[in-house]
Design a protein around this nucleic acid. Structure first.
Length: 453
RNA sequence: GUCCCCUUCGUCUAGCGGUUAGGACACCGGGUUUUCAUCUCGGCAACAGGGGUUCGAUCCCCCUAGGGGACGCCA
């Protein structure tokens, strides 16, 4: 059975890149009837925060990415990892090193000055120093040959072993380092396929060697090309690396975000719309593109608009209320009103913002309309007879046409100012729809307010 | 600097040796809506460059260029 995992370090919120990694990992597991697990790599005591653990958990939950088991907290395995590191040392697969930070820094500076790749030079590799507290343990990385693996997305990847150094697996404070812990935990969790960003490629080669030293089964690996910011640069706080929960707050639908995210790198013929359910059936790593992609706000907005309009009016009302507190149930014809606004909206918030005139009197003064004062008579004539008609959509429309004709008016002459009177805006649904939704009483009240000004 | 990955319209992508190089977003026009949006019809727009291999290269190989990434007692 396939077992995948998402292994974020809780040193920040979940952002677009991480969310996509989690999604692909989840979908791959589900499409193979496997399990999806979560592991918090929280061994950096300084930077790991409970608050981020919470927000990552909430983000995944919002995206409907379900875990098949409780999350694993790597910090709880520290003692075990240390034990294993020492075991490697006892077997001669790791060695003790007492190089001070100064020595290391100097070594690195000299290498950089000589335009070489900075790495530990193996000074203590064969000295058989006895390991005591305060020393680090380094992994004896194979010197000859190359390390390689077959990436599920990128294909064969091989790097000459001389590119690597004997990296530290146990710090001088006795805690294990990332490349050791991650490998051990993947082994312990029986991970079959590791799916992560391609910035981990060199880590993968390191971890494969650790796993080999541990006599463990090597999982399959799939490295996802990065998601770049719209600028083409790395995703940063400034562009794109927002907290996923901000998308929720800003009125995005998780289904839309998921659909957008999955299309960042993955495709399925010429289809663009996928439900999470469908994705769990058809997702395949073979269909993942090997080149990096850029975040596009436009595309995300397009998806959100689509998904907004997949919802029924009742669902929309509930979502808008939950999101911004605006309750379309409080107005007459709320369902009609919200479905009209949703057509052009990119987010729940936009619907709420756009809707104020359904909830508040716009209080438009006649002078602000910038039209001839003698038009007042026309508008009062219009409202006088509006009072008498049957307030039903076809009837309203019929009446407007008739009125225009009788007064030899073009629509904009009436429509433009009227729309402002009714909504305070130049752009809004059609006049007849507005009148209908607002109802006779409110419509007349607004017109009269302006005329009596 | 060394090593690794990547390169099809502006963007997301299809393509898997022979295609008028397809779709979507964005953009630009027409129609509908006598507003905006929606809807609808149409348009613009790409194989980074150079060498091979081949009867034939977007597709396979090499080089160059460009972009991204990795080189911590962070993860």
């Amino acid at each position: 059975m396939e077992i995948t995992r998402f292994a974020p370090s809780p040193t920040g919120h979940l952002h677009i890149g991480g969310a996509r990694t989690a999604l692909f990992s989840f979908l791959f597991a589900k499409a193979n009837q496997g399990k999806f697990l979560l592991r918090f790599e929280d061994t950096d005591q300084e930077r790991s925060k409970d608050e981020y653990v919470d927000s990552i958990l909430k983000s995944l939950e919002w995206m409907k990415i379900k875990l098949d088991d409780d999350p694993v907290y790597q910090s709880k395995n520290i003692a075990k990892h240390k034990e294993l590191a020492i075991e490697l040392y006892k077997k001669g697969l790791a060695y003790a090193c007492d190089c001070s930070e100064e020595v290391l820094t100097k070594m690195r500076e000299e290498q950089i000055a000589k335009k070489q790749k900075p790495k530990y030079n193996g000074l203590n590799r064969d000295r058989n120093i006895e390991f005591t507290d305060g020393m680090v343990l380094r992994f004896k990385f194979p010197i000859a040959g190359e390390s390689n693996f077959k990436d599920l997305i990128l294909g064969d990847i091989a790097i000459n072993n001389k590119e690597f150094d004997d990296f530290i697996i146990l710090r001088s404070d006795g805690t294990p380092t990332y490349n050791f812990s991650a490998a051990v935990d993947d082994m312990d969790m029986n991970i079959t396929t590791v799916i992560r960003g391609d910035d981990h490629i060199t880590n993968t080669l390191k971890q494969i060697n650790v796993l080999a030293a541990l006599n463990a089964k090597i999982p399959s690996y799939a490295h996802l090309p990065m998601v770049l910011a719209e600028s083409g640069k790395r995703l940063s706080k400034r562009d794109g690396a927002d907290d996923i929960l901000d998308y929720k707050k800003n009125g995005y639908l998780s289904d839309a975000l998921v659909n957008y995210l999955v299309r960042l790198g993955w495709s399925y013929g010429e289809e663009e719309i996928f439900s999470l359910k469908k994705l769990q059936e058809i997702f395949n790593l073979n269909d993942v593109n090997s080149s990096p992609s850029k975040y596009s706000q436009d595309l995300l907005d397009w998806y959100n608009n689509k998904y907004l309009n997949f919802l029924t009016s009742k669902e929309l009302i509930a979502k808008v209320k939950e999101n911004s507190g605006v309750d379309f149930n409080q107005i007459d014809n709320g369902e009609l009103a919200i479905s009209l606004l949703a057509k052009g909206a990119n987010s729940l918030n936009q619907i709420a913002e756009e809707s104020i005139y359904f909830f508040q009197e716009p209080h438009i003064k006649f002078d602000s309309l910038n039209i001839d004062a003698n038009k007042k008579i026309l508008f009062s004539e219009f409202s006088k007879r509006l009072r008498e008609i049957d307030f039903e959509k076809n009837e309203i429309e019929r009446y407007i046409k008739e009125f225009l004709h009788a007064n030899d008016l073009k629509f904009p002459e009436l429509g433009k100012p009227l729309r402002i009177i009714l909504t305070g805006k130049e752009n809004a649904p059609s006049i007849s729809e507005l009148l209908f939704i607002l109802g006779k009483e409110t419509s007349l009240k607004r017109i009269e307010y302006t005329l009596n000004d």
